[in-house]
Simulated scan of single mutants.
Amino acid sequence: MKNNQSLNDFLLPNAIVGKESNFLLLSGKTTPLRFLLHFKELLLLIFILVLFSVSTIPVFAGAYDEDLKTTDNIMDASMIYPSKVINDFNSAENVATWQAGENSKEINYVTSIANGPNSVYEGSGALEQTPELVKVYEWRTIYREFDTPLNLSDHNYLALAANSWGWQPVDYFIKVTLHSNQDSYEGIAQINSDQWNTFLLDMKDWGNRDAITKIEISYMQNFDLEGIEPGGPGYDHWMVNFKLII
Results as ranks from 00 to 15, higher is better:
152 L>M: 01
226 E>F: 15
135 K>M: 14
199 F>S: 00
130 T>W: 01
196 W>R: 02
227 G>K: 08
134 V>C: 07
226 E>M: 13
207 G>D: 14
163 N>D: 05
160 L>H: 04
173 F>P: 05
207 G>W: 09
218 S>H: 14
200 L>P: 01
126 A>H: 04
130 T>M: 06
179 H>Q: 13
169 P>Q: 04
134 V>K: 13
125 G>W: 03
145 E>Y: 00
199 F>K: 09
183 D>I: 06
140 R>G: 12
201 L>S: 01
222 N>H: 12
163 N>M: 02
171 D>C: 13
202 D>I: 04
206 W>T: 05
196 W>M: 00
151 N>F: 02
194 D>S: 01
183 D>Q: 04
141 T>K: 09
161 A>H: 04
192 N>P: 08
150 L>S: 11
153 S>H: 00
190 Q>C: 10
182 Q>S: 14
209 R>M: 12
177 T>K: 07
148 T>C: 06
140 R>I: 11
152 L>Q: 04
199 F>C: 00
192 N>M: 14
188 I>N: 10
171 D>F: 08
135 K>S: 15
199 F>N: 10
126 A>I: 02
180 S>R: 05
166 G>K: 02
187 G>H: 08
152 L>A: 11
204 K>M: 08
198 T>R: 00
192 N>R: 12
182 Q>Y: 11
162 A>H: 03
162 A>Q: 03
181 N>F: 12
135 K>D: 13
146 F>Q: 10
159 A>I: 05
150 L>V: 03
169 P>A: 13
168 Q>L: 10
139 W>T: 08
190 Q>G: 13
211 A>E: 10
125 G>K: 06
172 Y>F: 14
159 A>F: 10
175 K>D: 07
156 N>V: 09
193 S>H: 04
127 L>W: 03
173 F>T: 05
199 F>M: 04
127 L>N: 02
149 P>C: 05
136 V>R: 15
189 A>E: 10
143 Y>S: 05
211 A>H: 14
216 E>M: 03
204 K>N: 13
223 F>Y: 15
225 L>H: 06
187 G>E: 11
134 V>S: 01
134 V>G: 08
190 Q>K: 12
175 K>E: 05
164 S>V: 09
195 Q>N: 02
171 D>M: 07
221 Q>A: 08
223 F>K: 10
167 W>S: 02
194 D>T: 06
212 I>W: 02
177 T>S: 00
